[in-house]
Computed example of a mutant assay.
Amino acid sequence: MQSVYQALADLHQRYQEAYAAAQCLPQTEYISNWDAPCYQGKPKSGEIGWKAVPQEPALDFDGLEHGLEMPIQDSVKAFFSSFFAGDMVLRFREQFVTLLQVMHPEDGERLQQNLVGHVLMKQRLRQPVTLFIGLTDEDDLLVTVNNTTGAVGLEYVGQEQHAILAGDLEAFLERLEPIVVDPD
């Protein structure tokens, strides 16, 4: 089994190849006050092309772990601290998912704040702690990683994981299929 970093690098490669075959770049929201390292080309209609680049420096989770007084699943830390990239639209079997990515250091800070809120909600509800990594095309249905087991599953906001998609994040990333979203 390869590392989360390598599985994510391979997924980004497949994603870029799918877009290259369609003769376009994946698009993301252009945020003018960010000089996001993943931005490619010039913004058009509030969107800009992107290509994954290694994070330098990598997003640090020490403050988050200290603040929550708990360790964060290593696979999730690797997932969010490997690349600056736009979110990816993908398919897992018949399920469409948007895999969340970090575009810029400030985006990483915002992500960590949202993770804090998610973890505190799970603790308040006395549910196993999960960490979100993506969304689905269904309202309030998240793709999450169990913080203890590392299993990737689906859960509705405020509920426990109800479907396991893969035993670990590497296996999940390896099975995702890129979806080309026409920029026009």
Rank of each mutant, 00 (worst) to 15 (best):
E94P: 07
L154N: 10
D62T: 14
V143D: 11
L142Y: 07
R124C: 12
N33C: 02
E56H: 12
M121Y: 09
G63A: 03
V102R: 12
I133N: 00
L125T: 03
A58E: 15
L11R: 03
F92P: 08
A9N: 10
G49P: 00
Q159V: 05
I31N: 08
Q16S: 09
K77H: 02
L115P: 06
G134F: 06
L59Y: 06
R175H: 13
V129F: 06
Q16C: 10
E69F: 05
G41Y: 03
P178H: 00
L99W: 07
A166D: 09
L165F: 01
F132T: 12
G46E: 09
E69D: 04
A78H: 13
T149G: 03
A52W: 03
E138F: 02
T98P: 00
E160I: 09
L135W: 09
A18D: 05
G86R: 06
N114V: 05
A171C: 05
G108I: 01
L169K: 04
C24E: 07
P128F: 03
Q161N: 13
P128S: 08
Q112M: 11
G49S: 13
P178M: 00
Y156P: 08
A58L: 13
G134C: 06
S3W: 01
P37C: 03
T149H: 06
F92R: 08
R93I: 06
E56L: 05
Q159M: 07
D140N: 14
D139Y: 09
Y39V: 04
L165M: 05
W34R: 14
T28Y: 06
D137S: 15
P37L: 05
A9P: 03
E17A: 11
E69V: 00
P26I: 01
V89C: 12
N114D: 13
L173I: 11
K44V: 14
E29R: 14
L154V: 13
K51N: 09
S82F: 04
T28P: 09
A7V: 00
S81A: 06
C38G: 06
Q161A: 11
E47T: 11
E160G: 13
D60E: 12
Q6C: 00
C38Y: 03
Q27C: 12
P71F: 06
Q95V: 05
H66S: 15
L90K: 05
F92V: 07
R110M: 12
P26W: 05
D137P: 04
G86Q: 00
I48F: 03
P183I: 03
Y156G: 15
A52C: 01
D184Q: 14
G63F: 04
D87N: 15
M70W: 04
